[in-house]
Design a protein around this nucleic acid. Structure first.
Length: 130
DNA sequence: CTTCTCACA
DNA sequence: TGTGAGGA
C-alpha cells in the first residue's frame, strides 16, 4: 500500500490535483499564472505541497460561491500578512456577493411574475375565442 | 507524463 | 475564465 490518502500525503503532482478535483492541469497552471498558486519547482516540474493543495481548495470554493479569481487572489494574498484585514475583506466581499444575488433574485421574481401574467392573459383569450 | 506560448471564445 | 493546439 504505497498509496496514501490525499489528506495525509504531502507531495502532489499537477496531475494528482487535477484528477482529485476534477479540473484540468491547464486550469491549475492558469491559476498559477494569475498568482493564486506558487508551487515549488524541481527543474520545470511543479511540486505541490499540502498548503498548495489547501489553497487550491480555497480557490475552488471561492469559485463555487461566485467570486472572481481576482477576489480570491486578493483574499489569499493576505493569508500571511494581515489576518484581521483578510477577515474584513472577506466579510465585505461576502456582503457584496449576497447583495448581488438578492438583486438577481428580485429580478428573476419580477420576470417570473410578468411571464405568469402573460400566460394568464393568453389563457383568458383562449377561453373567449375558443 | 511534463513544460511553454499563442490564439480564441 | 479558461481551452485547444503544437512543439520540446
Amino acid at each position: 500500500m504505497s498509496r496514501q490518502d490525499a489528506d495525509t500525503r504531502d507531495l502532489f503532482s499537477i496531475a494528482d490535483l487535477a484528477s482529485e478535483f476534477g479540473i484540468s492541469t491547464r486550469a491549475i497552471r492558469f491559476y498559477e499564472s494569475k498568482g493564486l498558486l506558487a508551487p515549488e519547482r524541481v527543474g520545470a516540474t511543479r511540486i505541490f505541497r499540502k498548503r498548495d493543495r489547501a489553497r487550491l481548495i480555497l480557490i475552488l470554493r471561492g469559485k463555487r460561491l461566485g467570486f472572481t479569481l481576482r477576489d480570491i487572489s486578493d483574499y489569499l494574498s493576505l493569508y500571511d500578512a494581515d489576518r484581521s484585514q483578510q477577515v474584513s475583506l472577506l466579510a465585505g466581499k461576502v456582503d457584496e456577493r449576497i447583495a448581488l444575488l438578492e438583486r438577481q433574485r428580485d429580478d428573476l421574481e419580477t420576470t417570473i411574475s410578468e411571464l405568469r401574467e402573460i400566460k394568464h392573459l393568453a389563457e383568458e383569450r383562449l377561453k373567449k375565442t375558443g
